[in-house]
Design a protein around this nucleic acid. Structure first.
Lengths: 206, 206
DNA sequence: CCTAGACTCAAACGATTGTTTGAAACGCGA
DNA sequence: TCGCGTTTCAAACAATCGTTTGAGTCTAGG
C-alpha cells in the first residue's frame, strides 16, 4: 500500500491542497491547480485519495489527529497536576495550534482552512469534523464547566460558543492586524495567543 | 435605467445569490443555480450586473450601505447624549446587524455571507469591503480608544481584532448552539446579542 | 533476470462553468 | 397605433471542472 517514494506524491498533494484551500476555498481551488502546485500528475489525486471530497477530509485528518491528541494531552496533564484554571485550560487548547502553525513555512495555513470549514454550515464537512473530532470540544467544555460552576448550562454554552468563535477567527489570522515590520511571524503569533487567552478568559469569567 | 418591473428581476437575483453564497460560498454557487432559484433567465445576471464578481459586490452593497449608516447613527447618538460605554457602543454595532437578520425570512443569511468574505484573505473582495466600509470600523475603534484610555495603541488593536472576530463569527451563527425547540428565531438571536455584548465588553476591559 | 504490483503519465470523458449573442417580447410616450 | 429603448429568452461560446482510462515506468521479491 505504501512505499518509500509515496511520501513524496501523497504528502505534496496534501500540502499544496492545504495552501490552495486556505487561499481560494474548497470549491475555488481546482484539482488541476493543486496538482500543478504539487508538481504531480492530475490523476494522482484520484489514485491516492479517490476523490476531491476525500482529499479534503484527508487534509483535515493529517493535522487534526495530532492536534487533538496534543490538546487533550495538555488538558489531562493540567488536571492531573491540579492546576487547571481558565488561563491554563485555554493555553492547553491554543498552544498546540500555535505550535502547529509555527513549524510550517506558510504559518497559519491550516488554521485558515479550518476556519473555512466552519463556514460550510450544512455539509458533509461539518458532519465529518463533528463526528471525528467533536469529542475534543466536549472534553474541554467539561473542563470549563468544572471551572465555572456558578454558570448554568445555558449560560456556559453561550459563552463557550462565543469563545470558540473568537479562537477560530483569531487563529486563522482573519483580522486586520498586520505584523509589524521587523517583528517575526513567531513573535506576532505568540503575542496573539497571549492576548487571546487574556481576552477569552475575561469573557468567560464575566 | 430602472423601471417598475426592474424591482423584480434585480432584487430576486440579489436575494437568491445571497442565500446561495451563504450556503455554498462564492465559488461554490454557480450563476445557473442562482438564476434558477431566482426564477429568472441565466443571462439576466450579466445584463443587470455585468459579471459574477460585480454581483457579489452588489450583494454586499445592498446590505452594508444601510447597515453602516445605522451603526454610525447609533454611535453618534450615543456620543451626543454623552452615555457612551463599552456596552452601549457594542450595542450600537450589534443591534443594527441583529435587526437586519431578523427582518428577513432566512434569518442570519447575510451575516453568513459577510463571514465568508473574511475568509477570502487576499482578493478583490477584502479590498472592496475595506475600501468602502472600513471607515465604520475606524470610527468604532476611535470610540473604543476613548473609552479605554489606559490601553496603549497596540494593546487596543489586539483586543479589537479579537472582538471583531467574536462578533463576526457569532453573528454568522457558525457555532454549535442549536436553537431550543419552542424558542423563536427572534428570541434566540436576541439572547445571542446580549451574551455577545457581555462577553466582548469583559474581554475588552480585562 | 523476470515478473507482479505500485505508481505515473498523457489523453480523453461528459458535465458544468461564466459569458456572449441576436432575436423575441415588453411597455411606455408620441 | 406606431416606434423605440428596456428587458427577457433560448442557444451557443470557449474554457474549465472532477473523474476515468489504458498504456507506460519503476522497483522490490523470488
Amino acid at each position: 500500500m505504501q512505499q518509500s517514494t509515496q511520501f513524496s506524491t501523497r504528502q505534496r498533494i496534501l500540502g499544496a491542497a492545504e495552501e490552495l484551500f486556505a487561499e481560494r476555498g474548497f470549491a475555488g481551488a481546482s484539482l488541476r491547480q493543486v496538482t500543478a502546485a504539487a508538481k504531480v500528475n492530475l490523476a494522482a489525486v484520484n489514485y491516492h485519495f479517490g476523490s476531491k471530497d476525500n482529499l479534503i477530509e484527508e487534509v483535515f485528518r493529517r493535522r487534526l489527529d495530532e492536534l487533538s491528541h496534543r490538546r487533550l494531552e495538555r488538558l489531562a496533564a493540567l488536571e492531573a497536576a491540579g492546576n487547571a484554571s481558565l488561563e491554563t485550560v485555554l493555553d492547553a487548547f491554543i498552544t498546540p495550534a500555535l505550535e502547529l502553525s509555527l513549524d510550517r513555512k506558510g504559518g497559519s495555513v491550516f488554521m485558515r482552512v479550518l476556519a473555512r470549514a466552519f463556514a460550510e454550515h450544512n455539509g458533509n464537512l461539518r458532519t465529518f469534523l463533528s463526528d471525528n473530532y467533536g469529542y475534543v470540544l466536549k472534553d474541554f467544555a467539561a473542563a470549563f464547566a468544572r471551572l465555572l460552576p456558578q454558570l448554568d448550562k445555558d449560560e456556559l454554552y453561550w459563552r463557550l460558543d462565543i469563545a470558540v468563535g473568537a479562537l477560530t477567527y483569531a487563529m486563522a489570522d482573519f483580522g486586520m492586524i498586520q505584523r509589524r515590520s521587523g517583528e517575526s511571524e513567531r513573535t506576532h503569533r505568540e503575542q496573539m495567543a497571549r492576548h487571546l487567552i487574556h481576552f477569552t478568559a475575561a469573557g468567560l469569567r464575566a
